[in-house]
Structures are given as C-alpha cells and as structure tokens.
Write a protein that binds this DNA or RNA. Structure first.
Length: 951
RNA sequence: GCAGGUGUACCCGAGUGGUCAAAGGGGUCGGGCUCAAGAUCCGAUGCAUAGUGCUUCGCAGGUUCGAAUCCUGCCACCUGCACCA
C-alpha cells in the first residue's frame, strides 16, 4: 500500500493547529516538562541540521505529552544580527523586512515537518516587544553595578565592522566570518560576568551537561589559585605586581619578565640605551598576526630593560626583562621567572645566560644542588631558600608558608586569577538592541529612564552597499535627544547589544511570552524553569558562548529577584554533526566540492575517493529538507533522522537509508492495515502478542526517558513490527488482540512519525487526538516470562535446525525431506531441575557438586555415568568459555524446565509450522529412547535443546 | 603540550565481566509471492563443522575460572584550549 504523505501530513497539521493541541499553560497541579531547542537565526530556509535538532526535540516533547506531562515546547527566532543587515544593504531594503520574510519562510518549513510547537509563544528578538525587555533588564543590570563602560583593548573584525567578545574569537579569527581580528583601543560597554566566575565554575559540577561542554567551560573560566607578589624596582618607587601559581618557587626567581605592552616597560627604560630594543619588541608584538605569532612564539625572545627588582622575601636583586611570551591581559602582565621550575623560563634563561637555580627537589633526600637539565615543574620539598623556615616543606604547605610570609610583610597575598573576562557587550552595528544610554556633555553617561523605553530602532533608514559604519550614528533624530537628567542637548549611544544578549534569557521569556508589563512573571517562570529547562538541544558550537552567557544571565536575574532558579538548563544534549559524502583525496587529506565527484584531485591529480564530511555549503554536500519532504513526506525524514543515530552521535546522510525508512513506514502501514482487518479467532498466540507488547512498552518508556531515541525507534518502528509479523506467521488472527495491540503500538509511533500515528489513531476510532492523549500506566508484565519462553523455544529450535540443515545437506545425496527430533531424556530434565533447585538455594557447585551428583540414584547406572557427568557439568559449572546452563537460562526457561515442559508435545503441536520453516515435508518427534536413535543424536539432546537429524 | 572524546564485521552503528560470533539498519546474496517489475514476507551474510570448535571488537601486555567490556602502556583519529605565569 502506498499513502499520500502530503495529504495525510498537512491534514493533521491543520487539525492540530486548529484545535490548539500543543498549547500549554502553567499549571502547578501537573508535572511539567520544558523541551527547548536552541532557537534559530532565521536565514531563509530550514536546513538539515535544523531538521535534526527539531526532530529530536519534537519526538521528546510528544513523548512527554504521552507520559501525561504538561509540556512547554516553544519556538522563536534569534533574529537580530548581521546577515539581515548585510542582506538589506544588498537589496536596498531594511533588515526588519528581510528578517520577517525569512521568518515566514523558515516557520513554514517547520510547520510542514509537523513540529508540535505552541506557536502562541512565538517571538522574534528583533521585534520591539522583545528587545524593549532587553533594555529594561539592561537598566536593571546597570543598577546592580554589572554594567560598565571602559576603555579597553578590544577585538575588532574589519569585515563585520564591529568589536567582538572574547568568546567570539576563535584562533584569533571572528567566529562568524573567519577573518582575523585586530586589536583596537575603544570605549566599550561591558557586563561584569567575572563577578560570577566562581559560581559559573563551581555549579558545573551539578548540572547535566555533556563532559566536553563542561570541560570547555572550565577551561574557558580558567580559575587558578596562587599569589600576587610585589617586586619593588630598585632605585625607584615603582612596584611590579606579578601573579604566580607557584609561590613555593619564589626563591628560584632569577629575573622578572614583563609583557612588552606593560606600562612600566617604557617608564623603566625611558631615555636609556635599552629603550630602542624594547620599542622594537613591543612594536613587533603589536603587529604580529596570528600565524606569525605561533611561529615566533616557538622562539622565546626578550630584551633587558636595564633595571632590577627586589625579591621581597630574599631581598635578592634580579634583572627585569620584557618578553614576547608574556600576555598583557592575563594576571598583571608580569611574571616572576623561575627557570629551575618552569620550562618556559628555563628556555629563556638559557638563551640569555641567566642563572638557573634549584629550589625544589623531587624527593626529600635528593641532592639539593643537583644540576637541572630541564625545568622540574612538579612539586617537591623546598631547598636553597636562603631564609629560615622553608626548606623541607612541599606542595600546598610550601605555597601557604610563602603566602603567609608575604602577607606578613605586606609584599603579597594569596590570589585567585581567572581567564574569564567581562562580557564585551557593545557592537557597532545597526541590527541589534540599542543600548539605552545617553551621553550628556554636562551629566556624563546617563541611563534612559525606564519610562522612556523602548529606545526603538528607526525604520526610516535606507541601507546600501556603499555605506559603511553604523547607520544609527548618522541618524539625527535617533541620536539627538535631551539629557534625561539636565534636559540639555545630548546624544544617544549608537552601539547596539551583542545578539548573544538576546538569547541569554529567551528561555524565560518563552514561559510568559505575551506578558506586556514585565519581561516575565516570576511565578510562571519558576514553574516552567524549575530544575532548568528539562531538555535543551542544540549544537556544541555554543559551548562557551551562548551557554555561558545564559548561565550568567540566569544567575544575575536570580539575584535581582526575577526568578529563583540559578541554572537555566537541566539536561543538555548537543546533537551530533550531520555528514554527507564528499569527494576526498587521501593523498592530500583534503575534501572537495561535490562538483569534483568522479574526477581527479585538483591539487595532486590523483583520482578522488569519497569520504563523509560535515554537510555544508562550502562542499555542496547538502540535502534540502524541502525536497526530501516533498518526495517521502515529513514522517519518513523524521524517522530517518532519529533512526540514523542517537542524538549526540554524528550521522551520515544516506539516500538508500532514507528510502529504506520509507519502506519501513509502508511496512508499518501495511501491518496496521492487516491488524484492522482481523477476523475474530482467538488462539494461542494472542497471549504471546500481549506479552510482547508489555515488554516493548516498558523498555520503550525507559529508553525514551533517557533520550535514547534510536533505541526507542528501534522498538516502536522495527521491533513491534517484527512481533506483529511473527504473530501472524504463527497463525495469530484475533480482532480483539489486534486492537489491543494497536492501541498500545500506535502511540509509540507518534514521537517519531506523528502524522501516520494520528491517522491510525483516527482509523481506530478512538475519541480525541493522539497528540493530546496521555498513556495509562503500564500493565504488569511479571507473568509474561513463560509465554515468551514458549515462543523463544520454538524459534531456537528452528534456528538451530536451520543451521544444521546446511550441514546435513553436505552429508546426504538425497533431497532432505524429513526431520527427526529427539527431546532430552527424562533423567536429563530431572538433573536440570535438580540443578536449578540447588542453585536457587545457594548451593556451591564447585565444592559440593560432584559429591551431590554421586549421591543420586541415577548415577548408579554405569552405562550412563559418563553422559551423566557431562550433562551435570554442562548444567552447573560449564566449560572454560561457556557458563553452566543454570546461569544462562532466562527466568522463563528456568520456569519451563522446572515445571516440566512437555517438549515433545510442544514440538508435535507445532510440527506443521516447524516443517514449513525448515522446508521439510514431515517431522517426527519423541523423547530419547522412545524411538530409534537417528544419527546418534540422543547424546546431544539437552533440556530445551533437542537432538535434531535430517533425513 | 593540556583537556574531553572516539576506535566493534563490507558500511553505519548497539553493546550492564559470563546468556557474545556480538542487537538493529544499510548493502549484498538466496528464497516465497507475482505473467513480470516494484512493494512486502522469509532466510543467509568471519572460518570450520551433522550441533558443542577456531579466530575476531585499534595494537601490546595485565587482572580474572572467564574480557569487546576492568587495569597499564602505545598507536590513530576527532573536538576544544594553548608560552595563562
């Protein structure tokens, strides 16, 4: 049977929308589930990466609705940002219209996929009814002292014409366009995220983020414990403050290194013979590109500044250098150099002939004067301190002792340093939230009063490719405004906010998206956000950007009393990459555009092979979701995506796999059709099918709860189908049973393939929509083992007989036509029962097994003694590779044996079926000894594993 | 260099110390159905073998009665950070 996916899917989509099936409101009497995907930037149409993201989310949202939870599942658009501004320039329009055109397009794509969003909560961050709350909260942050405007060296992207935050610079390149960033000194707006450094770091221990995301955030925050030490400059009032994580090596300091940009450098060497060298080094570092820097930094280079500093503990005088490897922005931009115990300083000291001194040994009794061939960077007892009270102590105790000594003399103190910087918020672009600040010549910088919000982006701006800079700056009516404080002429801030600000709280806005008096109602947010968003799905690329900003924002708003939760996301799932084949040259280890398929490598000329590579425009190995939906329907695409790989794993696009999933959908449709057309004829298989349903249901629920969607789909779309097929093959044909099976099965189909599931539900004639249906509690399946074991017994016999048939064919000239099955003799079954019983009583077979066996009556039968012994061992201890059967039998099998299953009778009752499966015309079955021992198989016969011979 | 991760059959991918020659899918091969094709259904897919045997889960060792699973070392690949003091 084929079905019209387009008709079925769009019909149900309309019904779901018309009935408001997915609309959810806060209701403290119900358990909630907040399912959220990282909302998209609306860039025209939806791509396969989106499809994967949302198909995972939608399946989970639908699953949790089935489980009776109140599910919040919203969708909106992160619609501020440069692409719309650039597009507007290109076409001479306004970013606002570009954005809304794109939103309409991507939303239509999403709707066609059947995603179950509560569209009442739609939001676009570039709409003033969203970004006015950005401004409102900015004022709140400002009042709480978390906003700061300061002059700072910042990362500037020439291409994007704006500054970037630290998090947005990857390998010295802009995260968006890939162009190298340059350093500029500018007055900029910052959010003081570093106020939350410790909390951001420590809370990572308690949230369910993937390990790699946590590692990246820890790395990014980069907390290190150490000491701040002041080194006075000889013959000067100047003091060099240095941060070190190794105060225990302070007596090994033989020089001080400043970053070339350090303000003291110029001061120290001004007017001396050393000044020229320093200027040269400083200028060299300033113009270094990333590429050059990596190359140059292999070479540690420095210049002496002509002055000396005093070690505050030892009083020793050491030279001061400027070094190219010292980073100005970390710590104080000054390093106390300990060449004996820091490899970098060691290399530097070697090069410039500076003393290398050992002040730590590895073990207590090591020679304290042993020469160092490389820096010893580990911890060990202090030596050669030159001061009393330090030699011999090691590690943290040593650090603490040095810090205590420093604090006593006021020369330093314990200090924690972070790599994390404050969040540089301002952008010199138009398409973002205007920063609600006003610059007044007499009052300084004044916040826009809350009552005057929003500061709206003007719509009467024309964009063209010729213009550069921020159009806001030249928009007179925007810029010129009276000062809210003195009423005099003033100018508006024309910088706008980083778009990551928008996404730092949208998950809270979604909870109460239509609130027009506050950003959101606290109670509503506390309901939906309790424990964080229950499932947050998105790409790993935001590990240290969005995910860190959002965590900061949630904590800051919590402290402002806007919400009570401190962490925004409970479980985070980062979906894996979507790959597709691309031409690949093994020789050059390079991938090429799909246009090169079948050709030769453009660089080395060798024939190109194929490799799976991340789907993307640059390789052209993309697949259009729209095309696939048009061809196979949304359900097939969704099934393919979910079945292709578990959410976190990478997955490969495959046309043949997609088609296979389409066939699977058709098979399911056929099966459901056959189930609906059943006669009423109860039989032995009904009980089995019911049992299988119960087993599958409980596993399914378990794996779905843990977001193992692939396993879930395997059960719902593959396992259930094969069970149904087996039922029918075995003669199952009962209307009542089939209906019960469908009532259990169809809801399981809904998370991945909601449209066909809803269609089936409708065909069943159940009241109400499946989309709104909640599943009843699971029925008890504790008594299902025997009936499942019975079927498993037959399947095992058929499987092993099939294998044997192949062998048998080689040993006989004639066509095989008959099977003789000899079931285990009564004494073997009796032994098996005995072993099972003893095992349940905790009997120790290793110690007492043989004695027990010899005490049995049957053991007196000398003719059988060898076989009895073998059987006993196979039952109890097993062999080196195989455990005894009493350990490997399932509960059902044990029950079968213990209750004395009539193997002969079972096989005889199903002989026709077995004969068909084995393609033989007749089956003979009897217990060993009650007929001829055909082929000597009596010996092989074992409980549940009869001897089988082909004739 | 540091951190996180990965390595399973032709391919993709499951895999709690024993029920693992290893789920499921793709592909391939064979069969049933069909006038035929497609769809669907059934079966096979490491080697050997009239059944309990051998070899295999990146490589090499080890722990264990028993290892794909635990430990150690190494190799390869991916991701992130990187003279961060």
């Amino acid at each position: 049977m084929s079905y019209d996916a387009q008709e079925v899917e769009t019909r149900w989509q309309k019904i779901w929308a018309d009935t408001g099936a997915f609309e959810a409101d806060a209701d403290p009497s119900k358990p909630k589930f907040y399912c959220l995907e990282m909302f998209p930037y609306p860039s025209g149409s939806m791509h396969m990466g989106h499809v994967r993201n949302y198909s995972i989310g939608d399946a989970m949202a639908r699953f949790h609705r089935l489980m009776g939870r109140n599910v919040l599942y919203p969708m909106g658009y992160d619609s501020f940002g440069m692409p719309a501004e650039n597009a507007a320039k290109k076409e001479g329009g306004h970013p606002h219209s570009v954005t809304h055109r794109n939103i309409a397009s991507i939303r239509a794509d999403q709707e066609r996929m059947g995603y179950s969003y509560d569209w009442r909560r739609f939001l676009a961050t570039s709409d003033v009814d969203y970004y006015k709350w950005n401004q409102e909260m900015f004022l709140m942050l400002n009042e709480r002292g978390l906003v700061e405007r300061r002059m700072a060296p910042v990362n500037w992207c020439v291409d994007c014409d704006t500054v970037l935050a630290n998090e947005q610079v990857k390998n010295n390149r802009c995260w968006r366009c890939g162009l190298e960033v340059v350093q500029k000194d500018m007055a900029q707006w910052f959010l003081r995220m570093t106020e939350y450094s410790d909390e951001l770091l420590d809370d990572l221990d308690n949230i369910a983020f993937p390990e790699n995301v946590k590692a990246m955030q820890r790395n990014w925050i980069g907390r290190s414990h150490g000491a701040h030490i002041d080194f006075p400059v000889s013959n000067s009032k100047a003091v060099i403050g240095a941060f070190t994580t190794r105060p225990d090596t302070i007596f090994g300091v033989t020089f001080i290194t400043l970053s070339p940009e350090h303000p003291l450098c110029g001061e120290l060497c001004a007017g001396t013979e050393w000044e020229a060298n320093w200027r040269e080094l400083r200028d060299e570092c300033a113009r270094m590109s990333e590429f050059e820097r990596i190359n140059m930094l292999k070479e540690k280079k420095g210049v002496f500044l002509g002055r000396h500093a005093v070690n505050p503990l030892s009083g020793e005088v050491v030279p001061i250098y400027a070094g190219n490897f010292v980073v100005a922005s970390y710590g104080t931009g000054a390093v106390m150099a300990v060449p004996g115990h820091d490899q970098r300083d060691y290399d530097f000291a070697k090069r410039y002939g500076i003393e290398i001194r050992r002040v730590l040994v590895e073990k207590a009794d090591d020679d304290s004067n042993a020469p160092l061939n490389e820096a010893f960077e580990g911890y060990g007892p202090m030596v050669n301190s030159g001061c009393d009270g330090f030699d011999g102590i090691a590690g943290d105790a040593a650090k603490d002792a040095v810090i205590a000594a420093l604090e006593k003399t006021g020369a330093g103190h314990g200090k924690v340093e972070y790599r994390l910087k404050d969040w540089l918020l301002s952008r010199q672009r138009f398409w973002g939230t205007p920063i609600p600040m006003i610059h007044c010549g007499s009052c300084g910088t004044v916040p826009v009063p809350s009552a005057d919000l929003p500061v709206e982006l003007p719509l009467d701006v024309t964009f063209s490719e010729e213009q550069s800079g921020n159009p806001l700056a030249s928009h007179d009516t925007f810029v010129n405004t009276p000062c809210p404080s003195c009423g005099g002429a003033a100018r508006r801030e024309t910088d706008t906010m980083d778009t990551f600000y928008d996404s730092s709280w949208y998950f809270m806005r979604f909870c109460d998206a239509n609130n027009d008096s506050t950003p959101f109602n606290r109670e509503i947010v506390d309901y939906w956000m309790d424990g964080g968003v229950d499932l947050y799905i998105g790409g790993i690329e935001h590990a240290v950007m969005h995910l860190l900003y959002a965590r900061f924002f949630t904590k800051a708003t919590r402290d402002a009393g806007l919400n009570e939760i401190g962490e925004p996301f409970g479980t985070l799932v980062c979906q894996g990459m979507l790959n597709a084949p691309a031409p690949f040259c093994t020789n050059c280890n390079a991938e090429y555009h799909v246009d090169n398929f079948g050709g030769d490598c453009p660089s080395c000329g060798k024939p190109l092979g194929t490799r799976s590579a991340k789907m993307g425009k640059s390789l052209g190995n993309t697949v259009s979701p729209g095309d696939m939906v048009g061809k196979f329907g949304a359900d097939t695409v969704r099934l393919f995506i979910l079945f292709g790989a578990n959410p976190e794993a990478g997955m490969d696009w495959s046309d043949s796999a997609l088609e296979a999933n389409y066939r699977q959908i058709n098979a399911v449709i056929d099966a459901v059709g056959s189930a609906q057309a059943m006669e009423s004829s109860p039989g032995i298989m009904d009980e089995w099918l019911n049992a299988r349903l119960r087993v599958n249901q409980s596993i399914w629920r378990e794996v779905m709860e843990s977001v193992s969607l692939r396993e879930g789909v395997m059960i719902s779309h593959f396992g259930m189908l094969s069970d149904w097929n087996w039922y029918r093959r075995r003669g199952g044909c009962d209307r009542e049973t089939a209906r019960a099976f469908l009532e259990g099965w169809i809801p399981m189909l809904a998370p991945a393939t909601p449209h066909i599931a809803e269609e089936f539900w409708h065909q069943l004639g159940v009241q109400g929509l499946l989309a709104e249906h909640a599943l009843p509690d699971i029925t008890d399946s504790s008594n299902d083992a025997p009936v499942l074991a019975r079927e498993a017994y037959l399947r095992n016999i058929i499987t092993s007989a099939r294998n044997l048939r192949g062998l048998a064919e080689r040993h006989t000239e004639k066509e095989i036509s008959q099977v003789v099955i000899q079931t285990a003799p009564a004494w073997k079954s009796a032994l098996a029962r005995d072993a099972i019983r003893l095992e349940s009583e905790g009997f120790d077979f290793k110690v007492e097994g043989q004695t027990h066996l010899q005490s049995l009556d049957i053991f007196q039968n000398e003719a059988l003694r060898g076989e009895i012994f073998q059987t006993w061992m196979a039952l109890t201890t097993g062999s080196k590779k195989k455990r005894g059967r009493i350990h490997t039998w399932s509960d059902g099998e044990r029950a079968q044996i213990f209750s004395g299953i009539d193997e002969t009778g079972t096989i005889a009752a199903n002989s026709e079926f077995i004969a068909n499966a084995l393609e033989v015309s007749s089956i003979e079955v009897y217990p060993v000894g009650e007929g001829e021992d055909i082929g000597g198989k009596a010996q092989v016969a074992f409980p549940l594993e009869p001897g089988i011979s082909f004739l």
